[in-house]
Simulated scan of single mutants.
Amino acid sequence: MNKGVTYITRDGDCLDLICFKHYGRSSGMVEKVLEANHGLAELGPLYPEQVSIFLPEIAKPAASKVINIWD
């Protein structure tokens, strides 16, 4: 069973903003959401209201250790 949530669009929603609000970033997320929603790309960049979009659960990338040269 796929984990995730379903988002129902409002008129004028765009996938970049939906992904940014849900995942905290859009880079790389838009592609994964499009893969999970066959035919979504054909609707164009702005969606009408009541389009159901599945937002899959995507593991957050592991935080890389930051080295500060002043430490």
Results as ranks from 00 to 15, higher is better:
residue 1 M to H: 02
residue 1 M to T: 03
residue 1 M to G: 15
residue 1 M to W: 00
residue 3 K to R: 09
residue 3 K to G: 12
residue 4 G to Q: 06
residue 4 G to D: 02
residue 5 V to Y: 01
residue 6 T to P: 00
residue 6 T to H: 12
residue 6 T to Q: 04
residue 7 Y to S: 05
residue 7 Y to T: 01
residue 7 Y to R: 08
residue 7 Y to K: 10
residue 8 I to E: 10
residue 8 I to A: 00
residue 10 R to T: 11
residue 11 D to N: 15
residue 12 G to V: 10
residue 12 G to N: 10
residue 12 G to H: 03
residue 13 D to M: 10
residue 13 D to C: 07
residue 13 D to F: 08
residue 13 D to G: 08
residue 13 D to E: 09
residue 14 C to P: 01
residue 14 C to K: 06
residue 15 L to C: 09
residue 16 D to H: 07
residue 17 L to P: 00
residue 17 L to R: 08
residue 18 I to P: 12
residue 19 C to N: 03
residue 20 F to P: 01
residue 21 K to F: 06
residue 21 K to L: 12
residue 22 H to C: 01
residue 22 H to K: 08
residue 22 H to L: 05
residue 23 Y to W: 06
residue 24 G to H: 10
residue 24 G to L: 09
residue 24 G to P: 06
residue 24 G to S: 07
residue 25 R to Y: 04
residue 25 R to D: 05
residue 26 S to E: 12
residue 26 S to F: 15
residue 27 S to R: 14
residue 27 S to M: 06
residue 28 G to K: 04
residue 29 M to A: 14
residue 30 V to Y: 03
residue 31 E to A: 11
residue 32 K to P: 05
residue 33 V to M: 06
residue 34 L to Q: 11
residue 34 L to T: 06
residue 34 L to D: 02
residue 35 E to A: 12
residue 35 E to T: 04
residue 36 A to V: 10
residue 36 A to M: 07
residue 38 H to T: 07
residue 38 H to W: 06
residue 38 H to L: 09
residue 38 H to A: 09
residue 39 G to D: 09
residue 39 G to R: 03
residue 39 G to E: 02
residue 40 L to E: 05
residue 40 L to G: 01
residue 41 A to I: 00
residue 42 E to K: 15
residue 42 E to L: 13
residue 43 L to M: 14
residue 43 L to V: 04
residue 44 G to W: 08
residue 44 G to I: 03
residue 45 P to K: 00
residue 45 P to H: 00
residue 45 P to Y: 01
residue 45 P to M: 05
residue 45 P to Q: 04
residue 46 L to W: 09
residue 47 Y to H: 13
residue 48 P to D: 07
residue 49 E to S: 14
residue 49 E to A: 13
residue 50 Q to E: 14
residue 51 V to D: 00
residue 52 S to Y: 04
residue 52 S to T: 13
residue 52 S to H: 12
residue 53 I to F: 02
residue 53 I to D: 06
residue 53 I to T: 12
residue 54 F to C: 07
residue 54 F to Q: 03
residue 54 F to G: 03
residue 55 L to A: 08
residue 56 P to M: 01
residue 58 I to G: 07
residue 58 I to P: 11
residue 59 A to I: 02
residue 59 A to F: 00
residue 59 A to H: 05
residue 60 K to R: 14
residue 60 K to A: 15
residue 61 P to T: 09
residue 61 P to C: 02
residue 62 A to F: 13
residue 62 A to R: 14
residue 63 A to I: 14
residue 63 A to P: 01
residue 64 S to H: 07
residue 66 V to W: 03
residue 66 V to R: 13
residue 66 V to Q: 13
residue 67 I to V: 15
residue 68 N to T: 13
residue 68 N to E: 14
residue 68 N to A: 11
residue 68 N to H: 12
residue 69 I to D: 12
residue 69 I to C: 03
residue 70 W to P: 00
residue 70 W to C: 05
residue 70 W to D: 14
residue 71 D to Y: 10
